[in-house]
Nucleic acid binder design. Structure first.
Lengths: 133, 133
DNA sequence: CGCGACCTTCTACACATGTAGTAGGGTCGC
DNA sequence: GCGACCCTACTACATGTGTAGAAGGTCGCG
């Protein structure tokens, strides 16, 4: 059984993105990376990080007097969970309408469209639906 | 300028789904519709509803001593906002990876896949990307 | 007319989250 | 050795959310 990990909050997603991009990282580095868009105080980031540690979203290791952080969740997994949760919460479990919204409103680039078409074709070929939940 | 409407919370989405399905509705009807899955007490629902009223998510009209509720937001708009917000928060604004996740993990039914392919084709034909945000 | 059934509004409280201050300890230059 | 500087841990507080109890209005029935 996988440990039940609470989903990342807004602030935590920001930290995760920065961490996935570059890690390990200490608080100062993270703040430099996040500062511009968040305007957080150093201690704010530290608070967020400690909560993430409790949740198991990041792991920390102290070297000298500095704590080095690493993401403790995989980006793909985290995203998938978030997506799944959105589908349930907002789309009542039906992925179809979600796709409609995406295609109609989310302005895919031609490249993205093309790749998407390729995925579809691949899935098509590979046969039926894959077992869901 | 559209009034800034806070996004629905989890509980509020549930109420909205019920309301979109059937409205106007009073608290009792809503509770009957939601009760099974939520197990809410009557007053819990009422609290949620009054908060939704403040947020402008529903509108209410009192007839006799009963309040009748209607959704005050369009389902499509609400969903689009939620999706947009997810894309920003979780996917850093890139819809492409989201699609990848969908196609790879969300177990689309063959019908959904087919429809998606059709959309793609249509968009493809219709030429370039549509104007985004 | 009084009672029960049902409705409403108020009040409450715990937990999550955003945000940050304060205090205390290590390190390095001078 | 001392002060500047940087790091950490602890504490704090407002707001949003889930959840619900308590108290009080209304209306039909007997």
């Amino acid at each position: 059984m996988k440990r039940e990990r609470p989903p990342p909050s807004d602030a935590e997603w920001k930290v995760l993105h920065a961490l996935w991009r570059r890690h390990p990282a200490n608080a100062r580095e993270l703040l430099d990376a996040l500062g511009p868009e968040t305007g957080w105080a150093y201690t704010t980031l530290k608070t967020v990080l400690s909560r993430m540690l409790e949740k198991g979203l990041v792991s920390a290791e102290m070297r000298g007097n500095t704590t080095w952080y690493e993401p403790a969740v995989e980006q793909g997994r985290a995203r998938r969970n978030a997506l799944q949760s959105l589908i349930e919460r907002v789309f009542e479990g039906a992925a179809g309408p979600l796709l409609a919204h995406l295609v109609e409103h989310e302005s895919l680039s031609p490249a993205e469209r093309k790749q998407l078409a390729a995925w579809i074709a691949a899935a098509e070929k590979k046969g039926g639906r894959r077992g869901g939940r």
